[in-house]
Design a protein around this nucleic acid. Structure first.
Lengths: 334, 334
DNA sequence: TTGTACGCGTTATCAA
DNA sequence: TTGATAACGCGTACAA
């Protein structure tokens, strides 16, 4: 009556019975640990029977026995941002070195459509990327945890990128180029990284009373930025340089400037964040603060593995780089 | 000596010992099945002790006992394409209704950086999206499998979108508008979906000897498209309408056209695929073949759940829609 | 060279 | 209202 009767999976014991050996022999053979222990003929027979019967290992049982699942979760706010593809790539690469596979779970808070049901899977650890600490607490139920791109949670190993320094580099370069009216297009998100950037901007201009500053909070999409900055760029006291919290936001700024007939890098200088592939595709190419996303993922796994090894959780802050391109130039003469 | 000595996890048995009850009582309480069976005082005591000792369930043991993990894997070619975010959203929503959590795994073949190590986790099923059948076979080792956006594998339940019909709709509309020189910018990828689109395009123009056709294979990025189509749009026999395999590719076409001083929707009509958010952000808004990506995910889970229920695997082909916008218009007069 | 026996931590059945 | 007890399928120490 039960489904189990109909679809019962083939177990190692089943294989053993058919092959006429014990279950432990099957286990040895299938794990390649039969070298010099199990006779070649037995190895061949067991392998053939397992193949024929369609045996596949029960991972739950294996994990229970081993006390580990070999899988870690990379929790991200959303899948609709290719930055996390880079983080995963780095994490997966480093994970492979430790026999750790990495699956991705979009928590979904940013998509507005409520949060997704967290899978109740067996995990050796969780790496939470760019998420508010309270969301993270929800996600990780006691599993070893590392937080990426957020340093707001106490007592949890964190890997961050020095976005504040990145902001300072961009700002200083613009000041060097003579800009005195500077805007910061801010992502309207509560993420730690954006708070840091805002603070660094405020700090950088705070000591300079000769600088006219505009802070422009915007939704994340290029279209929203375009609409929001259009009036700003049309005004008489328009900024001659704009720093955007994201390359895609910068592309919205490009649209607005082009719509107003303004030249990027001449009439208005633009800087982005991330140095995503899109930065090079824009015309002119976008100056951007390059974030070491892959290394962020790598270091996340490193910290997680260290955690299991009992290492103390010391914070890591990765350096960033300012990539200068044609989207910035000297401040226009008045 | 072993790590297990040092970091042994708290088990239900440990909780039972401290709380002075049996392990089965702990299980009953912690699973909320103590209603009317376990006394309130015991429930409170057990809950408190579990909390205090930091008990967390061993999912591997639970899954072994239950014969299921409550987790399915959504395998995608890459994370660097937000289309899969929509697929996941649909799948996760439907999965939640069946107590099925969905994690994502980017196989990585498309990123060129080789494939990622497949996590050896306990899975109730795999949903493979937009991937060649041979890649899929590699990924799914006997686990119940559903394939999305690909109908090339025999014997595997598949959910597809009727991209051929979408192509036909776009093509017919352009013909209606008087276009007689039409190009198809094709994604240079072996995916089934792109093959279908190419065939549908060829089929649609095949019966019309009065139509001048150009087939332009391109890498997926906007910049690549821009560079590739620039000479095409400059030629004397330039197409008056272009269908692109992706909205982002269409944005590359926008760049090229603008660079040549051509008007989108006037000098050249443009159609995309996906109807991604970016389609509305472009200027002018991009006409596009809207793909039901969320429903694709939903139907994928549906098929997977049906599979476990022993349902026959019958293929599903979801209808698509052509969304007309200002990027297309009547063919320019010669 | 192979088999026996045990335990991983949980859920569920039954008896008390 | 609670407690023994038996699986679930696997890996491995140890016996044969």
């Amino acid at each position: 009556m039960s489904e189990k009767e109909v679809f019962r999976a083939v177990t190692a014991t089943d294989v053993a019975r058919v092959a006429g050996v014990s279950q432990s022999t099957v286990s040895l053979v299938l794990n390649g640990k039969g070298r010099g222990r199990i006779s070649d003929s037995t190895v061949r027979r067991v392998t053939a029977v397992a193949q024929r019967m369609g045996y596949r290992i029960n991972q739950s049982a294996r994990h229970l026995r081993l006390g580990a699942s070999g899988t870690a979760l990379l929790a991200v706010p959303t899948l609709a941002n290719s930055a996390f593809a880079a983080v995963h790539a780095g994490a997966a690469r480093r994970g492979a070195e430790h026999g750790l596979g990495l699956v991705v779970f979009p928590v979904g808070a940013e998509d507005g459509a409520g949060r997704f049901l967290l899978p109740q899977q067996a995990l050796d650890g969780i790496i939470a990327c760019s998420m508010p600490a309270e969301t993270v607490a929800e996600v990780s139920a006691g599993v070893p945890l590392v937080i990426l791109d957020d340093a707001s949670a106490a007592g949890v190993p964190a890997v961050t990128m020095d976005v504040a320094a990145g902001m300072a580099m961009a700002l200083n370069r613009l000041l060097e180029l003579g800009h005195r009216r500077i805007a910061h297009v801010r992502a309207e998100r509560p993420a730690w990284t954006f708070v840091q950037r805002a603070r660094a901007f405020d700090l950088g201009v705070g000591t300079r009373p000769d600088i006219a500053v505009q802070r422009i909070p915007c939704p994340f999409s290029p279209a929203a930025v375009r609409d929001r900055v259009m009036p700003v760029l049309s005004a008489a006291d328009r900024p001659t340089a704009v720093i955007c919290d994201d390359d895609n936001m910068a592309s919205g700024l490009y649209s607005a400037a082009m719509g107003l007939g303004m030249g990027i890098g001449t009439d208005v200088s633009v800087v982005g964040f991330n140095d995503a592939p899109v930065a090079l595709q824009m015309i002119p190419p976008l100056a951007s603060v390059r974030l070491p996303l892959e290394e962020l993922g790598e270091q996340g796994v490193r910290a997680l593995v260290g955690l299991r090894g009992g290492e103390p959780a010391r914070p890591v802050n990765l350096p960033v780089e300012f990539v200068e391109r044609e989207s910035i130039g000297p401040a226009p003469r008045e």
